[in-house]
């Protein structure tokens, strides 16, 4: 067993809230990823057992959605929205400058595996562009100085 007891009991509690157990599959993947940072093959197999489905069905869901990861991830995730409303307000330039600050090309991560920098599609912040999502948090109405300060404040 790789999934912790606590997470397992949270999964069981979510399953009880749906008319069919399978409805809790996305919530279960969120819970496992919250604990481990990604959903490993071992976890996926165990989730398949919990839901009484085939592992490939779990993998199918896991790989369909952008927010799920099936491999280990950088410590911090930085996504700049580059959809049209943000691009019109300089999001691509911002992304370029963050690339040069970190010395990497997006999508990609720093050599120490600390920061992943990428772009994302519309995040529903079009009136507050440009913006980025850092470790799940929205940062809006950015300029390069503000964005750099946010990157600098990220912990080890």
């Amino acid at each position: 067993m790789v999934i912790s007891k606590q997470t397992r009991s949270k999964i069981d509690a979510v399953i009880a809230k749906y008319p069919q157990a399978r409805g809790a599959l996305l919530p279960a993947l969120h819970l496992v990823q919250d604990e481990y940072g990604h959903v490993s093959k071992e976890c996926a197999v165990e989730i398949a057992e919990i839901f009484e489905i085939r592992p490939v069905e779990v993998m199918e869901v896991l790989t369909f959605y952008n927010l799920f990861f099936d491999s280990p991830q950088a410590k911090h995730h930085v996504y700049v929205c580059t959809n049209l409303p943000c691009s019109l307000r300089g999001a691509r330039g911002l992304l370029r400058q963050l690339e040069s600050q970190l010395g990497i090309k997006a999508p990609g991560e720093t050599s120490d595996g600390r920061i992943f920098l990428g772009h994302e599609e519309c995040l529903g912040a079009c009136g507050y562009a440009p913006m980025m999502r850092v470790d799940g948090q929205y940062h809006e109405v950015l300029d390069i100085e503000k964005a750099k300060r946010i990157l600098d404040s990220l912990g080890e």
């Binding site: 409805g23 869901v61 959605y65 952008n66 927010l67």
Partner: peptide, 20 residues
């Protein structure tokens, strides 16, 4: 949800709600 524009389409949403 988990990051998929298509889940805003109502039957795509229903599939996702069912864990697919």
């Amino acid at each position: 949800g988990a990051g998929a524009y298509i889940c805003g389409e109502e039957t795509g949403l229903l599939e996702s709600l069912e864990g697919k």
